[in-house]
Each structure stands twice: as C-alpha cells, then as structure tokens.
C-alpha cells in the first residue's frame, strides 16, 4: 500500500496557479455553452466548418505528450537524468505537433476570411483555442527548461520537485483540452 501525501506532486505554488487557470477555463467553457444555447443553429452550422480530424490528431498528441511526461518523472525517480531529459524532449516534440496542426487549422480559417468578429461562434472558437494554444507554448518552454536542467544533472532521485512541477502544469494543459475537444468539435 502506497503512503498518501497531503501535498500534490511538485511545488504547491504551481497548484495554486493551476487552480486559477482551471477556474478561468471553466468560466470560458460555461460562457461558450450558455451562449451556444442562445444561438444553437449558428453554433451547429459553423461547427461543421471545423476539421475534427485535426482535433483528433491534436488530442492524441497532447495525451501522448502527457504520457511521455509521466515517463520522465518515473525516469528521474530512478535517478536516470538523461532518460528523463529524453522523455521530456519527446513530450516537447508532441507539443510541437499540436502547435503545427493547430496553426494549419488557423491558416485554413484565416485564408477563408474568418476573424474574431465574423460571428459569435468563431469569436469563441478562436479566442478559446488560442488561449489554450498559448498555454501549450508556455508549457513547452517550462518543459524545455526542466529538460535542460535534467540533462545537466540538476535533478536526482532525491530532488526532483522541479520535474514534478513542470509535469503538473503540462498535465493541466492536457486536462483543459480533454474538455475543449468534445465541447467545441463534437457536442451539438
């Protein structure tokens, strides 16, 4: 039986930050859902213009990156600094896949003349997904900093709070997308 901790993994400050971020996204999601309830036909019509294949690839990329981060934490717990850095590098690469696919999606819409002011659906779609996009970017920077320190031997089996802190932030980014994907691309 594993002993349970009072504190979540990583620095407690990141969890307060995570709670604040999750709160903002919760408000965003609720605003989307209640606005949609007032404009069901508009939202259903323009949701059809979104490419759910891109969204699928992006969901798979983020889940895979989260899995790689879990493996990175497992590696540092075993005192394998290089392996930890490699897993984090793989997670960052999957984050890169997400950004490239999302950029392709944006390019498609912008080429068709879509902007924030096109209609209410696109206003929510663009602002919500771009806000998340920026979080992915921020997460990649955090993971890169952690990977670099791990590669230089800055973490060990007895001191890896930094790895867990970065990992917790990255899982939060994944968690938000887990709701965003069905809400924006599938539910109608």
């Amino acid at each position: 039986m594993t002993e349970k901790n009072r504190q979540p993994p990583g620095d407690l400050a990141i969890w307060i930050f995570i709670c604040a971020e999750l709160g903002v996204f919760a408000v965003f999601f609720a605003a989307y859902a209640f606005t949609r309830a007032q404009h069901v036909e508009l939202f259903n019509r323009y949701q059809q213009t979104l490419n759910s294949n891109y969204a699928l690839i992006n969901t798979l990329a983020l889940i895979t990156s989260s899995y790689f981060v879990v493996r990175a934490v497992a590696a540092i717990r075993d005192d394998h600094q290089r392996s930890c850095a490699r897993w984090l590098g793989a997670a960052i690469a999957m984050g890169g896949v997400f950004l490239v696919v999302k950029s392709m999606e944006y390019h498609h819409h912008f080429s068709a003349g879509v902007t924030l002011s096109t209609n209410t659906f696109y206003m929510f779609y663009l602002s919500l997904t771009f806000f998340h996009f920026m979080h992915v970017l921020m997460g990649m920077v955090i993971l890169a900093a952690v990977a670099l320190k791990a590669r230089r031997g800055g973490y060990s089996a007895s001191a890896y709070t930094g790895v867990e802190t970065g990992a917790s932030y990255w899982h939060m980014v994944d968690l938000v997308w887990i709701i965003l994907f069905p809400l924006v691309y599938v539910m109608r």
Binding site: R6, P8, S66, E164, M172
Partner: peptide, 8 residues
C-alpha cells in the same frame, strides 16, 4: 498522470 490518487 497528475498523481492525485496518492494525495489525501
């Protein structure tokens, strides 16, 4: 993934 099942 976040490890919260090991937190009380």
């Amino acid at each position: 993934f976040m490890g919260l099942r090991r937190v009380r």
